[in-house]
Design a protein around this nucleic acid. Structure first.
Length: 592
RNA sequence: GCCGGCGUAGCUCAGCCGGUAGAGCGGCUGAUUCGUAAUCAGCAGGUCGCCGGUUCGAGUCCGGCCGCCGGCUCCA
């Protein structure tokens, strides 16, 4: 965007400009109402904007209400927003005289001479723009929340008061956005977790530690069975490993030096040899690989485990299932030769596509994370490993962005984010190439020449963490799970007591074939039972009365579709078998 | 960890300026035997997150701790 470019409302960047101007409006209002406040920065963000302020007291609810009112008044006054090129000296003197230390710092750092500034009435800000021509353009705006934020995002710097807001060109667009927020709240996995009785987190157990209730455990088991089966088909071997290992092992792996901040403290046993709860599974798979000599003929060796790890996460970052302290990874380590790396990465990328596609996730964002500041190994090894990942991505034609310095300490990685039903992105899969742990643990295979060669490791997880993925699933489906994962797949509702026997017969018939079917024999009206089953998002409701009992049918009610009329139990049974086997996401109709 | 808000029955929440706790849902019991989103009635259920302080008296005020929520920073 050039400053002098004409930007109309249909321009892709229009909303950004609009919100940026709204951030200025916020700052103007704040400085009018609270003149002692100093300005930091105020950019547009994905769904709105924020502005950071330095102030000794935080903003209260009433403050925010006043600020919003003032913003609307200023918008109504339709104050022209004027772009100015001012001499650097003059601008610096201006901000210095006002004690605007952050502005002065910013101008020194990135201001040219003359300096680009924007002015609306008495309010002047250092800014490259562009902006809307006047405050009157800013129609539908709303202050949303406040928070603390560090100057330049560094927690060693002073903490500022951030005010978040959003704005749209029309009131309807704003209302629509607020509805979206409402929709996200409705799908919140923490809320649904309680409502559907899937899991809990309890004070007595500890923050970030998940208890899976029976219904949540059913879902998890379906995922596990699916993944075990899929791994088996792709030549992986399942292993199980302990949750703790001698601390010394973590010293060799480098975790003690490079990952200590994320580990639970070591524990000392009677013989005074310290043990460490595991933050990762790789050091265990490594020793399984190393337990005997390996020939090049058996590579690649692909070890897979639902490995539960524990990481110390700072209390403020915990969030339901999405950020926890104990979680289970669908973790695998592939041990292969250098020549096999590319094929293995391609295989993993294909595997990711298959697994995530099964849940209906087809849109991805891919990131290549490169060497971080603290790392083990040589620069050459990092270079080769990064190349390998990059080549694989280019080979399959996946668009990706580079995330500099975001790799793990032992290697670079590919991260995959998926888009959910309401457009949010979640990090799940990860693929990492590692030349370093094989070195540290002296992992070799015997080549055709009869000599030992260094093996290469690929770390990968597809769902990432069972906890996080299930949180994403809950939100994605809003608790209305596909047939194959639904905790209760069908519920049979007798119309009155005398149909209870038939209801139980239907239930048993399906239950015997491994379907999760319940009969609701409570002394309630049918409509009450329907309501309860609907609220629990049970995919199929079968209502049985005199007509159904006489004809060996059930009156089918499908989640989201309503009454589908009578169907022979035999046909329902066949439909269920097909639904389960195909892991189809829709429920109806039975054909295809 | 940091900033702000919050913590009352299983869940959602009410409780004014301090006077000793309430609703709806859920649970239990009884009546009702009912055809596509809530049948009626009765009953039970709370050391008001924990510890300390102020006060004649604390769910209410103050302090500390624990936890949760929105962010910051960070991540599977």
């Amino acid at each position: 965007m050039r400053v002098d470019e004409l930007i109309t409302l249909d321009h892709p960047k229009a909303l950004e400009v609009y919100r940026h101007s709204c951030a200025h409006l916020l700052a103007q209002a704040v400085q009018q109402l609270f003149p002692e406040t100093k300005l930091a920065v105020g950019p547009p963000i994905e769904n709105g904007f924020y502005y950071d302020f330095l102030r000794d007291r935080p903003f209260t609810e009433e403050d925010l209400a006043r600020i919003e009112r003032r913003m609307k008044e200023l918008a109504e006054q339709d104050i022209p927003i004027v772009h100015k090129w001012l001499p650097k000296e003059e601008v610096l003197r201006y901000f210095e005289s006002r004690g605007e230390i952050f502005k002065v710092e910013l101008i020194h750092e990135r201001g040219g001479d003359p300096v680009s500034c924007y002015q609306q009435a008495e309010f002047l800000d250092f800014c490259k723009g562009p902006h809307v021509p006047s405050t009157g353009y800013l129609k539908a705006l709303k202050i949303l929340s406040t928070s603390g934020a560090y100057w330049r995002g560094d927690e060693r710097n002073p903490q500022l008061q951030r005010i978040y807001g959003t704005c749209f060109p029309t009131a309807t667009a704003l209302v629509e956005y607020l509805h979206q927020l409402e929709e996200a709240r409705r799908r919140d996995h923490r809320r649904l977790g309680t409502e559907l009785d899937l899991f809990s987190v309890q004070d007595s157990i500890g923050p970030g530690l998940i208890l899976w209730h029976p219904k949540g455990a059913v879902i998890r088991r379906q995922l596990e069975e699916f993944l075990y089966e899929a791994h088996f088909r792709r030549g992986y071997q399942v292993v199980y490993t302990p949750h703790v290992a001698r601390l010394e092992h973590w010293r060799v792996s480098g975790h003690l030096d490079f990952y200590r901040d994320y580990m639970f403290p070591p524990m000392e046993l009677e013989e005074r040899v310290p043990y460490q709860l595991k933050p990762m599974n790789c050091p265990f798979h490594i020793v399984i690989y190393k337990s005997r000599r390996r020939s090049y003929r058996e590579l690649p060796v692909r070890l897979f485990e639902f490995g539960t790890v524990y990481r110390y996460e700072r209390s403020g970052v915990l969030h339901g299932l999405l950020r926890v302290r104990g979680f289970t990874q669908d973790d695998s380590h592939i041990f292969c030769t250098q020549d096999q790396i590319e094929a293995e990465i391609l295989g993993v990328l294909d595997f990711i596509r298959e697994v995530l596609g099964t849940f209906g996730f087809h849109e991805y964002k891919v990131y290549l994370s490169t060497r971080p500041e603290k790392f083990v190994g040589t620069l050459e090894a990092w270079e080769v490993a990064t190349q390998a990942l990059q080549q694989a991505l280019e080979r399959v034609g996946l668009a990706y962005a580079v995330d500099p310095g975001e790799g793990v300490f032992y290697g670079p990685k590919i991260d995959v984010k998926i888009r959910d039903a309401i457009g949010r992105w979640w990090q799940c899969s990860t693929v990492q190439v590692d030349f370093n742990l094989p070195e540290r643990f002296d992992l070799t295979y015997v080549g055709p020449d009869g000599h030992p060669h260094r093996v290469t490791m690929i770390h990968r997880a597809i769902l990432g963490s069972m906890e996080r993925f299930m949180g994403v699933l809950i939100e994605n489906f809003a608790g209305a799970f596909p047939f194959w994962v639904a905790p209760v797949q069908a519920r049979v509702l007798p119309v009155s007591d005398r149909h209870a026997d038939y209801a139980v017969r239907v239930q048993h018939r399906l239950f015997q074939q491994g379907f999760r079917v319940e009969a609701d024999l409570r002394d309630e009206r049918v409509s009450a039972k329907i309501r309860d089953a609907e609220l629990e998002k049970v995919p199929f409701i079968f209502i049985v009365g005199d007509r159904e009992a006489a004809q060996e049918t059930v009156a089918v009610r499908v989640r989201g579709l309503g009454d589908q009329g009578p169907w022979p139990v035999a046909q329902i049974e066949a439909h269920f078998h097909r639904l389960r086997a195909s892991r189809r996401l829709d429920l109806w109709p039975p054909e295809g």
